[in-house]
Design a protein around this nucleic acid. Structure first.
Length: 256
DNA sequence: ATGCCCCCGTGCCGGGGA
């Protein structure tokens, strides 16, 4: 079973790229982020025609997350991150698919540092970690995946020294990611490829993709039951080279 | 220190992204 995550950077502007990738990669379950579309403008018909059912939580202009499933039933659990009724940003949606919890997240960017957006990022991270801990404590097979907006280590940045004070790499944020993983999650890409340089995002600026000046910020965190079933993982980096493409590439795992 | 590129919309500029 193949599960993928893809920050599409506008689900309607990216629809041809998304449909082509679905057809070529044939993932069973897909988590999407940055829909940048209100609830009623999600392209459900095209996605149904591609063979997927979907649940999503849209928002005008920004954010927005979705979960797609090809065959297996998709049972929505929640469409918001618990812990702050005033937080109206669409950044989390969770479903049960094949008896697994699938959490699809779009963690706040947090720039500029310092400032209120950075504080919001740390607050969101804390709420997310509390929710993640509850999932582990329940002992259910779970996958948390999406755009974490964190490069976990220096290996995950083309030039770490340039990113020290960026909200994606600040020590507080890396520490928050480490604390989350240390609850008992496994970073799927690093489990299979501990030393490789692997990126999931390349800026539109400065020919970043051509220079391979990338970041690894889209992650798969697996609960112990899923980690035992992990048989493959990778990045469809060629998709980043397509016309009218997102600045992120799809990331996938295969479990037995 | 900033723009580069690209998305979206109370749209032809500005905010946000990372």
């Amino acid at each position: 079973m193949k599960i993928a995550t893809y920050n599409v950077n506008g689900v309607n502007g990216r629809l041809p790229v998304l449909l082509r990738w679905l057809k070529e990669a044939k993932p069973d379950v897909v988590c999407l982020q940055e829909l940048k579309a209100p609830q009623e403008k999600f392209p459900l018909e095209a996605i149904n025609e591609a063979g997927y059912q979907a649940i999503w939580h849209g928002q005008k202009s920004w954010n927005g997350v979705a979960i797609l499933s090809a065959g297996a039933e998709l049972k929505e659990v929640r469409r918001d991150l618990p812990g702050d009724a005033e937080d109206l940003q669409s950044r989390y949606i969770e479903a049960i698919v094949n008896d697994m919890v699938i959490g699809c997240l779009y963690l706040p960017n947090g720039n500029p540092y310092p400032g209120p957006k950075f504080d919001y990022k740390l607050g969101w991270f804390k709420r997310f970690s509390e929710h993640a801990k509850k999932l582990l404590d329940k002992g259910v097979p779970a996958i948390l995946t999406g755009d974490f907006n964190v490069m976990p280590t220096e290996k995950d940045v083309y030039k770490p020294e340039r990113w020290i004070n960026d909200a994606l790499f600040r020590e507080e944020v890396r520490e928050a990611y480490k604390l989350l993983v240390d609850q008992g999650w496994t970073d799927a890409i690093r489990k299979l490829y501990p030393e490789e340089t692997i990126y999931t995002f390349w800026d539109y600026f400065r020919n970043a993709y051509g220079r391979d000046a990338g970041l690894r910020i889209d992650h798969f965190l697996l609960s112990p039951q899923i980690e035992k079933r992990l048989i493959g993982a990778g990045v469809n980096r060629e998709v980043r080279g397509w016309e009218k493409t997102s600045d992120h590439a799809p990331v996938w795992i295969e479990i037995k």
